[in-house]
Design a binder for these strands. Structure first.
Length: 289
DNA sequence: AATCCTTCCAACCGCACGACG
DNA sequence: TCGTCGTGCGGTTGGAAGGAT
């Protein structure tokens, strides 16, 4: 036995909202609030609409502070990163973008960003990629991602591909010379001042890789195997190139990158907790999920 | 000018989940 | 514990608008 429909579809108006209906709904919500019951709201507001339709119209269009269009490069970046990390959980992604709705972000992704991302990925997939950056590894980016990301390299490959184009992230002007990567905690103040107003950041360890690809004295604790891939032996992935691409800084021999990746179960939390002016960590967390 | 094609986005649909009785 | 209800969410659709032929 299925559920009863939320309203009688035959008797309520459907389709595009008229300006009069918009004004009716807006004025009602502004003076009475939604009252915790969207189903009952249309009747109270004198609207011949389904409650769900009213809710959607309010949330996606009439609500104050809604922004439409005009996505910034930073917003593109956030959407791509979060999509790659958590998949099509648009409500979560939209929550990181003030003024954006899940529907808006979803539409934006489906109509523009997805193509942009695919354009960024194709050249790298066709080329002889580093061992982890196979086309199959990129697949999670291009197909609807599951809510639980299990790929250990999808983020990295996606980001790597992005650096090969000029559409999303500018490519580095010079190849990396040496990888000297310092893993550091974001400053507590910076984390606290994060515009996304996030959960407190657990105190990460400081891990330093020496120039020979080995690890310095600080003890490693987490799944450091993955971190070790950054510098051990043949580089599996050009992180210095990647991050210089993000920051726009030339990857010099003493490039220091601040990463807060290692303690977050997924990219969303990691991103949210970081407010670095330097490298926004990409593709380092999925092994922990 | 007419037709076809593509893009964009508002709106709909159905499912899942939590609250509640 | 179970059923119902309201809400939230993600996928999909349909039509308007603009571009290409």
């Amino acid at each position: 036995m299925g559920r009863a429909p939320c309203c009688d579809k035959a008797s309520v108006k459907r389709g595009p909202w008229s300006p009069e209906e918009d004004e009716q709904l807006r004025s009602y919500v502004q003076s009475h609030g939604i009252g915790g019951n969207w189903i009952a709201l249309p009747q109270k507001a004198g609207l011949n609409r389904c409650g769900k339709s009213c809710r959607l119209r309010w949330l996606n269009y009439l609500r104050p502070d809604i922004k439409h269009g005009g996505y910034t490069e930073q917003e593109d970046h956030i959407i791509c990163s979060l999509y790659n990390s958590i998949g099509s959980r648009w409500s979560i992604i939209a929550s990181k973008l003030p003024g954006r709705t899940d529907n808006d972000v979803k539409n934006y992704w489906n109509t523009k960003l997805k193509k942009k991302a695919m354009g960024a990925v194709q050249p790298r997939a066709a080329a002889s990629a580093p061992s982890q950056c196979t086309s199959s590894a990129m697949a999670p980016v291009l197909s609807p991602a599951s809510s639980s990301v299990t790929s250990s390299s999808g983020d990295a490959c996606f980001a790597a591909a992005a650096t090969t184009t000029t559409t999303m992230y500018p490519p580095p002007t010079t190849p990396p010379q040496q990888q000297f990567i310092r893993f550091d905690a974001p400053p507590a103040a910076a984390a606290a001042a994060s515009p996304t107003d996030l959960a407190p950041v657990p105190p990460p360890a400081t891990v330093t890789a020496d120039g020979d690809g080995g690890w310095a004295s600080d003890a490693l604790s987490l799944d450091d195997v993955f971190l070790g891939e950054l510098t051990a032996g043949e580089p599996l992935f050009p992180y210095a190139e990647l991050f210089s691409g993000f920051t726009g800084a030339a990857p010099d021999s003493k490039a220091t990158l601040e990463l807060s990746a290692c303690y977050f179960p997924n990219m969303a939390e990691m991103w949210a907790a970081s407010d670095h002016a330097y490298a926004k960590p990409q593709g380092l967390c999925n092994t922990l999920t």
